[in-house]
Design a protein around this nucleic acid. Sequence first.
DNA 1: GCCACGGTTCGGCGCCCGCCGAACCGTCCC
DNA 2: GGGACGGTTCGGCGGGCGCCGAACCGTGGC
Lengths: 241, 241
Amino acid sequence: MSAQPPAQPSAQPLARFAGLLADPTRAAICLALLDGRAWTASELAHHVGVVASTASEQLSRLVAGGLLVEERQGRHRYLRLAGPDTAALVEGLAAFANTSAPGPAPAPRNLRESVRRSAEARARTCYDHLAGRLGVGIADALVARGVVADDTGLAVTPPGRAWLAGIGVDLDGPRRGSRPLVRSCLDWTERRPHLAGVLGSALCAHARDAGWVEPIGTGRALRVTPPGADALHRLLGLTLD
Amino acid sequence: MSAQPPAQPSAQPLARFAGLLADPTRAAICLALLDGRAWTASELAHHVGVVASTASEQLSRLVAGGLLVEERQGRHRYLRLAGPDTAALVEGLAAFANTSAPGPAPAPRNLRESVRRSAEARARTCYDHLAGRLGVGIADALVARGVVADDTGLAVTPPGRAWLAGIGVDLDGPRRGSRPLVRSCLDWTERRPHLAGVLGSALCAHARDAGWVEPIGTGRALRVTPPGADALHRLLGLTLD
DNA sequence: GCCACGGTTCGGCGCCCGCCGAACCGTCCC
DNA sequence: GGGACGGTTCGGCGGGCGCCGAACCGTGGC
């Protein structure tokens, strides 16, 4: 029974919320949805390797818990993360989970290397911005060139803002809202921060629109196109592996 | 069996890590440790309302998972959160859990009011900085007075830095390290940000040292002393309820 | 030396939860 | 209208896990 009141008032909600991500199936679903797109229920079921009915239950649970939102169209049920803050939470938690937990790690040492070499580790989207070595490299380059200052938290410098506008990255677009202009997001493959927030989103959109990157297959992985590699080298001095 | 490999490589660690907080007992332990102090195992057991053996198991699990660190002294086992970033993660997650999860909420409406009136909601420590209405009030006041800028992420302004030094808050103390100078931390009672990072820590230390606040009992709750109320009003125009 | 006490280990109990298969419902296409 | 298909509901199974009590271990005090 143990119906005695919990000593901390918020322990119950915290546990219930954390429980949403405490299952491998639900965790895999949330990670898949980090690409920011809306997936159908059966896509997710197939992707994480469970039968449709199981996925249906877990998806309902995630929606009820507020992590996911759903949109029904005809006989399809589209699912996506509830918002950018939710995505940041999941990504941050995943990064934390990968950096800590030194216990009986089920990672056979060279799995790490194979992950590092994968296309996703090289360049991918993280919700609506760029991640992987590409994302981290861009973040480093922008800090090195003074576009973004890293003194006391991240900030876009005034000359940096002009420089960004000059190459076609507009920070005053419709996406503004109350989102922070630039935010740091911990990269779970590189374990170092890349850029999120309005700037991260605008950069990613620009890279897509300008043809610098294009998606590989249906996942989050990206390929840097030859013109993209040229532009990144010319503008940021970036050389990718 | 279902031994098929998970589609997402990091789903397993994420689930395991989230699972650490997915239990009410473990969650309550972590929330209690948010005060930044080291507790003994039996203190925690009594506080969260489980028997010593149960607490021992859960504590070992939290330590193995990297959320807590332990320090053994004689026949005592002291436990604290692994670090400020861990504390931020727990606090952020708790705030998120309280804001989302609109489901069958077990909160009987006026519980919220009773929480609001509690001493903890008025003023408390959050790991090593100030929280509650006092914490967010200070944050608002510092932003309003230009000590902290909130344009593109939080930052301490140059005049703000001088002003802080003038009242005895030193930001270049030994605590610097690689911590951000000022960071936003979501307050789970107010659901609005208060100040963390080096500034938050220094402010809290100064408030204690100057006798502005003093702990109530053994918890995280704080009482604002008469001289403290005077100083906060004089320096920041802050009037507390 | 003895005893008190904090902490741990172990066995066992009971519940919860994630999984599946089967049946069912609604939508879309032909 | 009929059939294909995405999605849901339900029953049942199995495993994992959180809890406790009891026994045990090591430290510290007397």
